[in-house]
Each structure stands twice: as structure tokens, then as C-alpha cells.
Design a protein around this nucleic acid. Structure first.
Lengths: 229, 229
DNA sequence: ACAAAAGTGTTTTACATACACCCATGG
DNA sequence: CCATGGGTGTATGTAAAACACTTTTGT
């Protein structure tokens, strides 16, 4: 096969995290190199002997030290001049992680990694802003018909966390009673015996997402779906 | 930028058509070359100076002579051995066309192109079967929340065509009265004064999809959505 | 007159929405 | 006892689902 093609393949990850009731994105900064000082999505070139997914996982680990619980291909960006240095197409992914589970290795020699509030993203390299926009759209759409929000929370969480998560991501108020009623009706949340005590207010009962139950229900044709006008 | 990467980038299209009340897919057959006799999705390598989308459009035109009204990126397939000859990643697209608008140029020297019933797909090259599966999933999901079905029909069509299209793609019976009521409630269908007379039965009034009206409504927050258990 | 497809309304059921007060704890 | 956040039920509105007969044409 003699094809003369000079296109490089990269992967980039839009990593979402949730903490302090805010939706965040994980960005890195090359401390040295051609794009110094510009923040960018974690990512890099795919190796000849690894799949796209392996490449994202590897790059994420190398650059930030995190491992995503949830990883999903987002979109492939192929504009001709998205990288001025060469023709590079970027296969992008979205990842969900719980920031509390990792301390970013911001101390390595080459790279700084930080969480940024989704509403306070700095100027980014390449077309990474577009990738984030697309990623956010996907996230907003997806939490309505797949129970992926749990990936952003602690494994045991109070109902209010889940509620705030949805309100934050969708940027809208949701009635507490209706939300709770709906979620509980799915029977994929498991009540624990534990409580969380913040300091003021009544302690909140903690729940767990029952993934096994969810998969069972899914098999039987159940379809997770939330609709809040 | 010195990256030693030996990965080629290709595009492939899952082209859906609808005729004789059947959902079809457009496949090509290399008459000569390494994959002779195996049917495959139309597609090919991306040129250095064209975008991914331009590449699909070009390949589609070269190999089959069709031009898609609707084209949407589907997924990027990056398994390591999906093509035994080299490492090739495939950015796949789905396209919708009305087969009646094109006669396939099955007469060219190198390639045969044919419509295949979705339920009667031959053995395919590479992982093209997987790509079709993914494409079909996307199509099934998407006709429920975007008015793309019209792209598969004549610009003026009887209600029964639309109804059959949905029933065929979703593989389920839909109540005629409820379907009609729902679609009409959106006010994106324009009644024409024409009728279609098949030969037996009462002639059917023809409708047009009012794209302009749809875009207006969309702007005002309207969201096309069909739900049939 | 009959076969074939188009066209048409009403009733029932389920789910989404709207809405406000009491409870348990810490300070 | 007050501030803070957690927990709960009901009534109303709206859209989905179920369901069968009449109309228009060709033969």
C-alpha cells in the first residue's frame, strides 16, 4: 500500500470533574516547547502500536496522573489548519473523574496540570475551545439518558450532591421533590446506613449507585431517562 | 515537529437509502486490487489538503456518484489490525440520500456500487460490519429527536411513506393516528395540493417538510421529539 | 360490489409539573 | 432558639397510548 499521506493522529481528552459544586475541566500547560504558556487539553500523538483509547489513557496518565472511570469517544476534529505546525487530526474523548480521588502531579518537570472552572477557561491552544464546547454539549445531553453523573461523585453521596450536579451541568433549577421521586423510581440507587454531616443542617443519608442493578434493568429494556423542562 | 508515526487516515461512509419500503445501504466492490470481491463501505484515504468531510464527499462522488443531502460524523475506528496491510484509522460518517435521485455509476472501470437491504448485507471487508452496526444505531436514535427522516424521502411525500420509514427503521409498528397527530402538531409539515395515486386505494395527499419553519421553531427552543414505545 | 390504502376522534392512563411545610442537627 | 440544609405528599395539567370505522379510488 503506497499512500503518500502526511497526516498525524492525536488524541485529546475533555476531562470533567465536579467539586465545590462546580463543573471543572482538567487542563495542562506545556512548561517548555512550542506552545509554552498556553493551556491545552491533555492529549498527544497516538503510537503505532496502540489503539486510540489506549493512547488517551496513556496520555492522561502521563500528563496528569488521573485515570478516568468513564471514557467515551467524542468527535474527530480534522480542520486543515487546526495545528499550524503540521496536519494533525484529533480524535477527542470525554472523561469523567472524581477530582478527590487524585492529586494532580503538577510537580513534574515538564507539565503543569490544573482544574479550571468550566466558566473560567483560559485561552487555549489549537481548537481546544471548540472541543470543550462539543464535550460540554455531549455531557449535557448524556446525563439525561445515561446514569453517568455518578462517575463524578463519591461512591457514597447525599442526594443533594446529585441534585446539585444536575443543576450545575444543566444550568437550571430542578425541583428537589420531583428529582428525588424520579431518581428513586428507577431503583438504581441504593440507600446506605451512613449519613453525612456537614456541620450545619440535618445530616443527609448517603446513597450508592447500584451499577449491577442498572445493567440488569437495562437488559430488560429499561431506559434511564430524565426530563426536566 | 518530529513525530515518527506511521498511521494512515481514511474516511468511510454508511450511506442510507430508503426504497420499496426497505432501508438500504450503499456498498462498493473493488473489481481489482487487494480486496477484490469483498464488498465494502465507500471511502478512502484523506488527502493532505482536504478536511475529513471534504474527503468523504469526494470519495462518495468518485466511487458511487451520489451526493448526500445529510452527512454527519459517526465514529472513529482505531483498532490496530482493522486493516491487515497497514495501520489505518477510519473516521466514519453516516449519510442519508434518496436513491431515486441517483443512478449508481456501476459502469465505471474499477468499481461496482449497489444498494443492499439492511437485512441482507454480504460479508464485508475490514471492520465495516461494525461501522454499519454503529451507523444503524445512530440512525435509529437520531430519527427520534431530529427530523432527518425526510432526507430519505422524495421532497413531496404521502404521510404513509413517512410512517413506513419510521416503522422500518425502528422495526416496530406505530399507530397511524397517533403518529400523524404527533407529526402534525409540530407544524413542520406543509400540506401541498397534490395527491399521489398508486393505483389502488384512496389517493394520498402529499406533504413537504418545511425546513425553514423547522429552523425558526428550533431557534425558539422547540425540540423535535418522537417517542413511540 | 369489493379490495386497497387514506383519513379521522375520543377515552384512558401515565407521567411531568407545581407547590410549602416539617425535621434533625450544630452553634 | 435560631440558622442551615434534609426530607416529604398531593393536586393539576398534559401528553402518550389504545382503539375502529368511514372515505376515496381502481378494478
Amino acid at each position: 500500500m503506497k499512500i503518500h499521506q502526511n497526516i498525524k493522529v492525536a488524541v485529546d481528552a475533555v476531562v470533567f470533574g465536579y467539586s465545590d459544586n462546580k463543573l471543572k475541566i482538567l487542563l495542562i500547560q506545556q512548561k517548555f516547547g512550542s506552545t509554552t504558556n498556553k493551556w491545552a487539553l491533555p492529549g498527544g500523538f497516538v503510537k503505532d502500536a496502540e489503539t486510540l483509547e489506549q493512547a488517551v489513557i496513556r496520555e492522561l496518565n502521563e500528563e496528569t496522573g488521573v485515570k478516568a472511570n468513564y471514557l467515551e469517544q467524542l468527535y474527530t476534529f480534522g480542520a486543515i489548519n487546526r495545528d499550524e505546525r503540521a496536519r494533525v487530526i484529533a480524535v477527542s474523548y470525554i472523561a469523567l473523574i472524581n477530582p478527590k480521588n487524585y492529586s494532580l502531579k503538577a510537580d513534574t518537570d515538564a507539565i503543569d496540570a490544573k482544574w479550571f472552572d468550566i466558566n473560567d477557561i483560559p485561552k487555549l491552544a489549537f481548537d481546544h475551545k471548540d472541543i470543550i464546547t462539543k464535550g460540554l454539549e455531549r455531557l449535557k445531553a448524556k446525563i439525561n439518558y445515561q446514569p453517568i453523573g455518578f462517575e463524578l461523585l463519591n461512591s457514597k453521596f447525599p442526594f443533594s450532591d446529585l441534585e446539585n450536579l444536575y443543576q450545575t451541568i444543566l444550568s437550571k433549577k430542578i425541583d428537589r421533590r420531583n428529582f428525588r421521586k424520579k431518581l428513586l423510581s428507577f431503583e438504581i440507587l441504593q440507600e446506605t446506613t451512613e449519613f453525612q454531616n456537614i456541620g450545619s443542617g440535618r445530616p443527609a443519608k448517603l446513597y450508592k449507585f447500584n451499577n449491577k442493578k442498572y445493567r440488569e434493568l437495562e437488559q430488560n429494556g429499561f431506559h434511564f431517562e430524565i426530563k426536566f423542562a
